[in-house]
Amino acid sequence: MTKFINYQTSESVSDMAEFLGYLEKEIVRKTEGILPMRQVITIEESRSVWLSMPVVDFTRDTFLVKLVSEYKGNPKKSLPKATGLTMLSKASTGEVLAVLDSNYVTALRTGAMAGLGTKYASREDSRKLGVIGSGLEADFLTKATIASRNFESITVFSPNPEHRRSFAEKIRKMGQKVSEASDSNQAVQDADVLIVATDSEVPVLDGQHLKKGCHISSIGTLPNRRELDRTTIERANHVILDRTEYVMKEAGDIMSAVDDGILRIEDFLELDGLISGRSKLERRDGDITIFKSVGYATLDVISARYLYEKAIEKNEFTEIDL
């Protein structure tokens, strides 16, 4: 029987601090497999996008396919903006082990990557966290980041006041001191670490307001999206990526900066290299760092396998007959 692990079960069985350690070990393992570029289907009429991400991971005996959709107009219809399912199978036999909620699989590994980026690239004395965004990704990036550094205060901004208040209250329930910003500059100007988690096609901050020594965690998924402004990129002393080849196909703000000669590919560092010690970040106190993550399928394998293992361990799942 196949295990069905929905969002609520995933939330029940997982722990962000634990997963940070799990991912930190797994990400540096040499992986053998087949990792095709993801397929993207854009439907302009409905302002929607569908993504299909397959991977065969022989190292972990895993075949995984993740399907994700995003419909920007859905919230006005009282429907979820993003949906999707992830199928986890054994590569050696084709046996379908589990079907999981793609939103949780994605958010867990995206947040944890940002948390590890903060651990390895931010100043150890970082005490003030700024957050731009209030959705699912902002939630998970914040959870992972506060698990990586001890912050004294958090300032959040979202252009939607209702979303901003709700998000701030959620963070307060984690035992954090939180204030709400009326504009993005207030979230930026005092931040030692800044989370930028949006789906914006235009920049959402003014890099002139970044303080020296700030570390920025930014997510980006499509070439037409540019949540980071040019000033932020120009002021960055170091740019760390999850995978250079994928960022250079999918992160519009970084791609355009390279095209315009602002950044050079040969100067990029990759997070797994910092973790393994293959690369070294020579960070001075006033240096500004950017961690840019678009995600790749091996991360989905690690996230899905963790959730599957925890669900089995805690005996929390629904059995389905496919």
Rank of each mutant, 00 (worst) to 15 (best):
127 R>A: 09
144 A>G: 06
115 G>D: 01
197 A>P: 04
214 C>G: 07
107 A>P: 00
99 V>T: 14
223 P>A: 14
147 A>E: 09
201 E>C: 11
192 D>C: 08
152 E>P: 06
183 D>F: 13
189 Q>H: 13
114 A>V: 02
135 G>L: 04
236 A>K: 05
102 S>L: 10
114 A>K: 00
163 H>G: 06
169 E>W: 11
182 S>P: 05
158 S>R: 04
188 V>A: 08
142 T>K: 06
187 A>N: 06
200 S>L: 07
96 V>S: 14
228 L>D: 09
206 D>P: 12
159 P>S: 06
133 G>P: 04
129 L>V: 02
115 G>H: 00
179 S>R: 12
229 D>N: 08
149 R>W: 10
112 A>P: 01
239 V>F: 03
122 S>M: 03
115 G>V: 01
109 R>V: 01
146 I>K: 03
232 T>P: 03
104 Y>I: 08
110 T>Q: 03
132 I>N: 00
237 N>M: 07
218 S>Q: 12
185 N>M: 14
174 M>W: 15
127 R>V: 05
101 D>F: 07
220 G>Y: 05
194 L>K: 02
208 Q>M: 13
144 A>T: 05
206 D>N: 15
214 C>I: 09
157 F>S: 03
111 G>F: 00
223 P>N: 13
136 L>S: 03
207 G>Y: 06
142 T>S: 12
176 Q>M: 15
234 E>L: 11
104 Y>D: 05
121 A>F: 01
199 D>S: 12
120 Y>E: 01
116 L>S: 02
98 A>S: 15
196 V>Y: 00
147 A>V: 03
156 V>E: 05
193 V>R: 00
109 R>I: 00
241 L>Y: 10
158 S>N: 10
114 A>E: 02
159 P>N: 07
149 R>N: 10
241 L>F: 12
213 G>Y: 08
139 D>S: 10
168 A>N: 04
224 N>Q: 14
107 A>Q: 01
150 N>Y: 10
179 S>Y: 09
97 L>V: 12
233 I>W: 08
119 K>M: 02
112 A>M: 03
236 A>W: 03
97 L>I: 13
237 N>E: 12
130 G>A: 05
231 T>N: 11
